Amino acid sequence: MSSKDWLEKDFYAALGVGKSASSDEIKKAYRKLARELHPDRNPGNAEAESRFKAVSEAYSVLSDERKRKEYDEMRSLFGSGAFRRNAQAGEGGPGGAPFDVSDLFGGAAGQPGAGGRFGGGFSDLFGSLFNGGAGPTTRARGPVRGRDVEAEVTLDFADAVGGVTLPLTLRAPGVCDVCHGSGAKPGTSPRTCPTCQGAGVVTRDQGAFSFAEPCRECQGVGTIVEEKCPECRGTGGVTKTRTITVRFPAGVADGQRIRLAGRGEPGARGGPAGDLFVLVKVRSDDLFGRSGDDLTLTVPITFAEAVLGTDLRVPTMDGAVTLRVPPGTPSGRILRARGKGIVRRDGRAGDLLVTLEVVVPEQVSGAAREALETFAAETPKAAREHLEARLRRVS
């Protein structure tokens, strides 16, 4: 992506967030728009597909802390238009064609000339100023890395705890199988652009500077497709449906992102593919909860069991375990079953934390009431003596 793209595109507006938005706000806005504009939900809707690409492009910059900082600095320094010519002015007037900011410094560094290539990014621009005059980097007309792709998968609680392998179906841009990305009709080939001689840019001298801009004849590609591929209509790419197998490791957590290197969008001109990031959502379980690597479970016990103690058999994710409830156990006490939680990557396991909840019945039988009354008469009330003393002072 060139510095000209960064100047002319408002990525914050594309996501509908302010410039001071946090990373979480940017991510939330992207996910919402991506779900609404996804090609699967808008088949045949060219406008939705275009906005989906724009939203993805904006997120790829603003979700990266380094890229976002460079983007903000560039927009702040050069976004006012002071370094761009008025596209409506004539060639001989004070305006001229718009140009890439980095091309301005590239020409000044001794790189002008027809068909020349100039630096394409904000970091390249300042790198060329402080690297001892070595000049800017080459415009990326060679292999270009594909964009990263994000998908969302919802797992059952048990699958997240134990790990699972699932097929994942994706719809994303890919290389056209008919023309293999060239955009040309089978049996034909793109020809070199006669205007820029394949450079993708044209330059013009104006005063002390040499200005460069993308070639209008070939749109900066360097080649012209005369007979377009009937499948992709000359773009070289199509939206594809593909299925890949993803292994979710044991203990994967809700909200975790799993990176699959090289499984994102294919690169351009032979470049490497981007990465696939799978966002994991975990369904809640009707019995178990989770706290880090520990599993949690709430178990009801009777008043008699809390007073007298008991052996309590409770379920685990892979069986059952017996825990000893000591006599005089209060409601809310937590018992620990070691090693019955989530297995860590190093082979160690978390624990199962069992919270005891003393259940008070709403109704009891006559015999049970008599037994409780006898119990109450025999039970000392020393636990409330400090309250009784205060009551006596205020009455």
Rank of each mutant, 00 (worst) to 15 (best):
V358S: 01
L323C: 11
G255M: 14
V299M: 07
V153G: 13
K185G: 00
D148T: 06
R247V: 04
A134P: 08
G93P: 05
K381N: 09
S189Y: 02
P136W: 00
V153W: 07
K67W: 04
S76K: 12
I342D: 06
E231D: 15
C196F: 09
A320G: 11
E25W: 00
D72S: 09
P194G: 15
Q219F: 10
P315G: 06
G127K: 08
V178A: 15
A389E: 12
G127E: 12
G96Y: 01
D72E: 15
G127A: 13
F277V: 05
G187E: 00
G115A: 14
V144L: 13
S80C: 00
A109K: 09
T138M: 15
L356S: 05
G251H: 10
G264D: 08
F248I: 08
P315Y: 02
T298W: 00
G18A: 10
N42A: 10
T310V: 13
H180Y: 05
E49D: 03
G251L: 14
S123K: 10
D156G: 08
T239Q: 03
A58N: 04
G262A: 01
I244G: 01
R336K: 14
G207R: 01
A368E: 14
V354G: 03
C218P: 05
R242H: 06
P214H: 10
E8W: 06
E57S: 15
L7T: 12
T316G: 07
G319C: 12
R68I: 12
E150N: 01
R85K: 10
T137Q: 07
V149C: 07
V299E: 13
E373W: 11
E73N: 12
S3R: 01
K281P: 00
P266G: 03
S182E: 05
